[in-house]
Amino acid sequence: MRPVLYTVTSAKREMASTMTITLEPPRQVGIGQTGAAEPGAAQVGIAQTGVAQPGAAEPGAAQGLVPIAPGQFNMLWSWGVGEAPISASQSGLDGALVHTVRDVGGVTKALCAKQPGDVVGVRGPFGRGWDIDTARGQDLIVVGGGIGLAPLRPVVHTILASRSDFGRVALVVGARSAAELLFRSELDCWWRDRAITVRTIVDRPSRDWHGSIGIVTNELPRLEIDPGRTVVMVCGPEVMMRFVALNLIERGVAPEAIQVSLERNMQCAVGQCGHCQLAGYFLCRDGPVLTWEVARPLLEVREL
């Protein structure tokens, strides 16, 4: 499967090592340039669940890819460097893609260096994202740590777009420092709007930080929860997700109501290269979001 060539229309620096890039799909091209589909290539399709299936990304394809859902990811390609799996930090856009990338290696460094007008190849969307529908009519706790807030941002957007579909909603955001709080101005807006409860907490306060100091699990006991009707979505370092899940389970939240987004080495993104296996799951296809009920026994085994 080849990437579709998107064009960078904006590149916003979030912090020292993190960029948010907006990508526009290729402009519609004439008939005859749709590119010869590779034999046996999967068709673009929408499954019954409404989750977009991996599509055949063909050069010259008239349109962009099928819309990406919150929690799903695309493989972003920098020519001559390689691909990295990056989740959408915004969804529901008409064709455009928004990805927030943290520079942690060769490919992500190249992606962070993209400027408007540059080309980024995209394959996707891949995987199973957040199951937002199970949270409708329920209370929702969204916990994001560090760059882990990026795949949760579309969840918040979805909630705010249909706020009355959800009960109490709390967003708990952890970061190393105030300067490393992702989407800080947007967090401030959400905090001021009070449509949802927003709690930010940092490991290392700067002198001008007047917010909470500590880790996200410190914030959880401070939330009033009704465990029987609470859905949780967590993304961040695996250790953080483990402690968040255990903390909330102790307060009576059901393991199947807790969704975590897991990270493993991903290369092909279609369940064929084997790198992202976690027991019987290909996280590129069956994940990255799993319920804690499913994830816990797997994460409990060291080095599984």
Partner: peptide, 15 residues
Amino acid sequence: IDSARMRLLDLFGES
């Protein structure tokens, strides 16, 4: 103590 230890891990920091 748990909280302090977790912060020592510097989970969100650069590797």
